[in-house]
Write a protein that binds this DNA or RNA. Structure first.
Lengths: 243, 243, 243, 243
DNA sequence: AATGAATGAGCGTTCATTCAT
DNA sequence: GATGAATGAACGCTCATTCAT
């Protein structure tokens, strides 16, 4: 959900999403997608409609091939074949195999980023309700994009840019939670020996890594509702929120 | 504390060596190192003293090269060169590059396993003290073996055996914690909507993944004591232990 | 002094345009630029003014790119980019990369050819003065077009047409000198064991190759006046001219 | 003719030619082949006899392929095939195509270098006789190695190392001639406005470039004796030697 | 047990040229 | 004339693994 509520977005000629003035005025702080997540800012941008179609087809095909073969086994030739274009055409749009991989990673991670910025209807939810909602959203995204997210976690180890994307997106969640913990500490909730930054990072790790082992590595066959409830419950307990 | 005499072992269907009940009854909690973690069971075992020395040198060299270049960039030729033997000699002792990698992973993971089984002096510690002790130990091991642990986390994505090692070791911690949670639930502590297995898995994820982002990906520059205190505190809260 | 009106031309079997005797008789020594040096005879000729401008811009850009990257590393895409036209437009005017290269080579070599035919004011010069003048002119052209001349010398090795241009231009000088030597031999100057053709070729080699090593390969940091004086002196000595 | 008269040579374990003490004592200044010309110092040196044979076969095959196809069109695969080894074996001995090319260039140029250092029997020759002898030797080497020498002249334009080899070998001749001219100038022979360095360079250019056009580019069909006589005669005249 | 030569499949990338619009 | 997308042949190089000695 990239678009902001109560406003319209457009893309300038460079393909960068621009919030128009009305939306900014109406919705207050608009959360611009960080540059690092803009997949359109990567690779060569085609000028013609035909070119844009071909590029899009390549990205879709690459995703299919990456999910099927993994990044390392994926061959550019296969991606091109899958897209129905010649081998050389791939390089009309992307500098290398890793570049198109980053495009897809940015796409998937922007979903995670969006989930963290989607506050639609949050007003009617309690603090706990918001956490539950976020956790459920995270699980959904992992279910739908598990293969690519798994490949991304690997790539963190060998590609600097993927690592930066990974850290940037994580940072969004960590920062928000940290501020929440700080607020609570000011209000007298939570122990003094809990560092807000560490606590926030640990909570994000708890959820994301649990889901990784559950849905990607197949650690257990848990019930989703139970998982959401347990995670939310633990989260609340760790933050000393009254459940 | 790699192996203990005085018990028999068997393998469960997942290939994990399990201490049978008899041995447990006879020798108290005996913690046999699972076969999957026995690095000596991998690769060709030399018969002569010289051979054993060469094999050892290769393992040490491989670790140096892997930590320096990563698994993918590491070349067998470099490992052999580092060990001062010819390229071909490598294959006298190991079937492949990934095989020697697994040996090292098993070595490092057995340290983690040991840490989880080292109950020396635990009698004098409170439940919370034991958790703190375990967390601190985990951080220490990550500090000392971070490079290899990072490589292992990547390899989980593309090597089945590494994945099995990873899951087996994790399972040890998860199971213990699960039993602990179950006990507490029987004693009326902890909410009913907390699933013991999920809770245990989430706690392990919380600690291990936080440390990964902290020490490997350099997420923050936290104070170790503060980190240990915060993690232990959160753990206790999640389990509704009185602190 | 690229072309002179008032004569007809024909082509000898080597494709070199020769002024016929009638035209020579009528207009004095007319020096038609050989067809092989006419860069306008190469590539597709545009009909519109705009087209001619584009073609010219491409030639200028190509020269910039060739001098910067060399012939082999130069890419047609770069030439087009430098000229501010699309990649495909290049092929509206030139058949291939080597074709535009030949155009530039022909342009540069026609300068050399001109220098050899520029007899303006020669009447007031002694034979030695003319040689000095020619040598100095040659050096000047090499200074101003060194990069392209160096590329041409290389291309001689792999492009038949460039080789023909190279030989045709050289031939002009060699022939003139040969005739001069023959005249002197008839007048009793110069040893009988000196072959006029070989002598002429050797003298041309002496000057051109010396300048190549000096100005292109940076063999020495010679003073230009000294170089001209030395070359002229050696030339005179070789021809047994009284200095 | 790499070996020095009146002495023996041997190769140390690195394959470097060493003049033994006796030869030094007997023959005075021994002319060590410059490192840049030692083809054995390039590429990977095999340890075993089999390896040395294979490497040698590759060099011979590469020469065949280069002479047939030129450097640019030559493919490593063809070189390997010609040598009867697999594609990968090529890279056991040479880092790249250009590396084996340099080996051959160094080999050929060391012949030229040798020719410049071969003073066998020079005692019985007049100064002019020595020049004639050198010129004839040069022509012979060009006849026998023309293809490779032509390729080398091209490569001078795009390979730094080949250029260095080319300049180094030329320098040997230039320096010797320069000293000779300086000596003559001290003895009152030769004009004051002749710079020894320029004169020497020009003479070397005269011979080498004339031979290049003659034997490589096929400029003329000269008689060898007449060419030698003419060149030597011109040389003598330029140096004001009495013929 | 050790050596090091030999293998050869594998793949990413380049870029001159063509072509549909 | 101009555009720029599409083509696809071409090739250098890597390196894990095997094998003869």
């Amino acid at each position: 959900m990239r678009s902001q509520p109560g406003g319209t977005t457009s893309r300038d000629e460079r393909g960068v999403v621009m919030a128009n003035e009305a939306s900014v005025a109406a919705a207050g702080p608009v959360h611009e997608l960080p540059l690092i997540l803009m997949s359109d800012s990567r690779g060569i941008q085609p000028t013609t409609v035909k070119g844009r179609k071909t590029r899009k087809r390549l990205v879709e095909s690459a995703r299919v091939v990456f999910e099927r073969d993994g990044f390392l086994n994926a061959r550019v030739a296969d991606i091109a074949k899958e897209a129905g274009v010649s081998h050389g055409t791939f390089y009309t749009y992307f500098d290398s195999k890793v570049e198109i991989f980053r495009v897809i990673v940015a796409d998937v991670m922007s979903l995670v980023w969006d989930a963290n910025h989607d506050t639609t209807g949050n007003d009617s939810l309690s603090a706990l309700g918001r956490i539950e909602r976020a956790n459920r959203g995270f699980i959904r995204i992992y279910r739908e994009n598990g293969s690519m997210l798994a490949l991304m976690e690997q790539a963190v180890g060998y590609d600097k840019e993927v690592r930066e994307i990974r850290l940037a997106v994580r940072q969004v969640s960590v920062d928000r939670i940290r501020r929440s913990v700080e607020r609570m500490q000011r209000e007298g909730i939570g122990g003094a020996d809990v560092d807000p930054a560490i606590c926030a990072a640990a909570l994000v790790s708890m959820v994301s890594n649990f889901v990784y082992f559950w849905l990607i590595l197949g650690e257990g066959d848990y019930d989703e509702d139970l998982a959401v409830a347990t995670l939310t419950n633990m989260w609340a307990s760790a933050l000393h929120m009254s459940t």
